[in-house]
Amino acid sequence: MNISIASDRGGENTEELIALDENRDAYHNALKLFIRGFMALPTDDKTGKAAEVYQLLKQHGLAMDRESYSVQSNLTTSLLNELAKPEMVSIISDLNLTDLITQYTGSEETFKSKYRESISAEASKEKLVAASSIKKEVHQLQKQTIGYLNAMLVAQPEKYKDVAAVVAEIMEKINQKIRNRYNKN
């Protein structure tokens, strides 16, 4: 059980995930634009090849960049696996999109790695306990610790004098914060 005092309960790496997702989306959109551009050429031999890639894009969702992180990752991985098949590799090469697909694959792998890390961090937070729910236990432990420290201060003053002074100072600061909070309300 972890104790949660002033811990952040928001999504882990949210800003970084957003940036990585936008990067991945940019590659997806660039691929769509290139393919649509090749398909718009009236006489080019690349039109038929682009149409094959376009069918794959359609099957996996032209608007996959609007899906949730996990759905988009699954669709992207599936699309990239299809594009990695030998017959598609030659088409991608003929369309001069090899570098774009390589970068798209890299952006997807980077995103998935960070997403897994974020999910793992969030999952570990489920074990956190709110500080207010353990207030009584903490108060009891404080009383026991102070009682022990006072007893040891009497029994061995030289050894515990400095520790007792530090604890007394900390407790006074905490108590002052509590008094200030009650006075505000």
Rank of each mutant, 00 (worst) to 15 (best):
residue 182 Y to A: 14
residue 49 K to Y: 01
residue 139 H to F: 14
residue 131 A to T: 11
residue 180 N to R: 06
residue 153 L to Y: 02
residue 27 Y to P: 00
residue 154 V to M: 10
residue 103 Q to S: 03
residue 4 S to L: 05
residue 127 K to F: 08
residue 125 K to M: 09
residue 110 T to S: 10
residue 183 N to G: 07
residue 99 D to H: 10
residue 168 A to M: 12
residue 44 D to A: 13
residue 175 N to I: 10
residue 182 Y to F: 12
residue 29 N to L: 15
residue 107 S to K: 00
residue 105 T to K: 03
residue 115 Y to C: 09
residue 34 F to K: 08
residue 157 P to E: 04
residue 134 I to K: 10
residue 111 F to N: 01
residue 101 I to L: 03
residue 8 D to E: 13
residue 185 N to C: 05
residue 162 D to Q: 05
residue 171 M to Y: 07
residue 35 I to E: 00
residue 57 L to F: 01
residue 147 G to I: 01
residue 17 L to E: 00
residue 98 T to N: 07
residue 45 D to R: 10
residue 60 H to N: 03
residue 168 A to G: 11
residue 55 Q to D: 03
residue 61 G to K: 05
residue 80 L to S: 06
residue 149 L to A: 08
residue 25 D to F: 04
residue 128 L to H: 07
residue 179 R to Y: 08
residue 91 I to A: 09
residue 50 A to D: 00
residue 47 T to Y: 14
residue 82 E to G: 12
residue 30 A to T: 09
residue 7 S to P: 05
residue 101 I to V: 03
residue 30 A to I: 10
residue 41 L to R: 12
residue 4 S to F: 03
residue 66 R to P: 04
residue 115 Y to L: 13
residue 21 D to F: 00
residue 20 L to H: 00
residue 47 T to V: 13
residue 121 A to L: 13
residue 54 Y to K: 03
residue 113 S to L: 04
residue 173 K to S: 10
residue 110 T to W: 03
residue 136 K to N: 15
residue 87 E to T: 09
residue 170 I to K: 10
residue 150 N to G: 14
residue 124 S to Y: 13
residue 45 D to S: 13
residue 102 T to I: 06
residue 139 H to N: 15
residue 92 I to D: 02
residue 62 L to N: 04
residue 82 E to H: 09
residue 180 N to M: 05
residue 38 F to M: 11
residue 133 S to P: 14
residue 70 S to D: 07
residue 141 L to Y: 05
residue 58 K to N: 04
residue 150 N to W: 09
residue 57 L to Y: 00
